Structure formats: structure tokens, C-alpha cells
Simulated assay, not measured.
Amino acid sequence: MDWKIFFTIFASVFLAELGDKTQLATMLFAADKAVSKYTVFIAASAALIVATAIGVLAGSLLSQYINPKYLHYIAGIGFIIIGVVTLVKA
């Protein structure tokens, strides 16, 4: 395993996920006294694992048909569009 890549991906995803809707929803579920905190943790973790697996599979499939350089451009443009839309709606 390439630890440099591991920690780069970990840091990027960790920072991107802090304070997002997923974390806020998980906090709301955990705030419910009738719900087991272990259940919230396991369910939220499983959901993130499945979502990440879908992302990895989609990226693997797309990279077979589209040059990864272009995928980076597409992802960058997508993030810019999301940022602009978010700023306009704010």
C-alpha cells in the first residue's frame, strides 16, 4: 500500500466531509436518546462505505473509456459549477 496516497486521500475526504449534510444528519440521529449510538455509527459508516465503493467503481469504469486527465477537468468544472450555484443561492 502506498501510504502517501492513502494519507492524501484520507485527508482530502476527511476535510471534505467535515460539516457536510451527512455529518449533520448523523449528529441528529445520534442526538435521539431512543436510538443506539452504535447503530447510528454502524449504519452511517456502512452508508459511507457503500457510497465510496460506488465512486471507486464508477471512477474505474470511466477511466477505461475517458482519459483520466479529462476526468480531472470534468471533476474540477463540476466543483466550480457547484460552488457558483451555491454562492448564487446564498
Results as ranks from 00 to 15, higher is better:
Met27Ile: 09
Met27Arg: 09
Met27Asn: 10
Met27Gly: 07
Met27Asp: 12
Met27Phe: 13
Leu28Val: 07
Leu28Glu: 06
Phe29Lys: 07
Phe29Tyr: 10
Phe29Gln: 08
Phe29Thr: 07
Phe29Asn: 06
Ala30Gly: 03
Ala30His: 01
Ala30Arg: 04
Ala30Cys: 04
Ala31Val: 03
Ala31Trp: 03
Ala31Pro: 00
Asp32Ile: 14
Asp32Glu: 09
Asp32Cys: 11
Lys33His: 08
Lys33Trp: 01
Ala34Leu: 04
Ala34Val: 02
Ala34Phe: 00
Ala34Met: 05
Val35Leu: 08
Val35Asn: 04
Val35Met: 01
Ser36Ile: 02
Ser36Arg: 06
Lys37Val: 09
Lys37Ser: 08
Lys37Ile: 03
Lys37Gly: 04
Tyr38Trp: 13
Tyr38Met: 00
Tyr38Ile: 02
Thr39Asn: 07
Thr39Tyr: 14
Val40Thr: 03
Val40Gln: 03
Val40Lys: 05
Val40His: 05
Phe41Val: 00
Phe41Glu: 00
Phe41Ser: 00
Ile42Phe: 15
Ile42Asn: 09
Ile42Gly: 06
Ile42Ser: 12
Ile42Ala: 15
Ile42His: 08
Ala43Pro: 01
Ala43Glu: 01
Ala44Asn: 14
Ala44Thr: 15
Ser45Trp: 14
Ala46Val: 14
Ala46Trp: 13
Ala47Asp: 13
Ala47His: 12
Leu48Thr: 10
Leu48Lys: 10
Leu48Pro: 02
Leu48Gln: 12
Leu48His: 09
Leu48Gly: 13
Ile49Leu: 15
Ile49Glu: 05
Ile49Cys: 09
Ile49Ala: 15
Ile49Gln: 05
Ile49His: 03
Val50Thr: 10
Val50His: 09
Val50Lys: 06
Ala51Lys: 03
Ala51Ser: 12
Ala51Trp: 02
Ala51Val: 04
Ala51Gln: 08
Ala51Cys: 11
Ala51Ile: 08
Thr52Pro: 10
Thr52Gly: 11
Thr52Asn: 12
Ala53Leu: 15
Ile54Lys: 02
Gly55Tyr: 11
Val56Gln: 09
Leu57Arg: 12
Leu57Pro: 07
Leu57Glu: 14
Leu57Gln: 13
Ala58Asp: 12
Ala58Tyr: 13
Ala58Pro: 09
Gly59Asp: 00
Gly59Glu: 00
Gly59Lys: 01
Ser60Glu: 12
Leu61Asn: 07
Leu61Val: 13
Leu62Phe: 15
Leu62Trp: 14
Leu62Asp: 08
Gln64Leu: 04
Gln64Cys: 05
Gln64Asp: 03
Gln64Asn: 01
Tyr65Asn: 12
Tyr65Pro: 02
Tyr65Lys: 10
Ile66Val: 13
Ile66His: 05
Asn67Met: 12
Asn67His: 11
Asn67Gln: 11
Asn67Cys: 08
Pro68His: 00
Pro68Arg: 06
Pro68Met: 01
Lys69Gln: 10
Tyr70Met: 11
Tyr70Cys: 04
Leu71Ser: 05
Leu71Thr: 11
Leu71His: 08
Leu71Pro: 00
Tyr73Pro: 02
Tyr73Arg: 09
Ile74Asn: 02
Ile74Thr: 03
Ile74Arg: 04
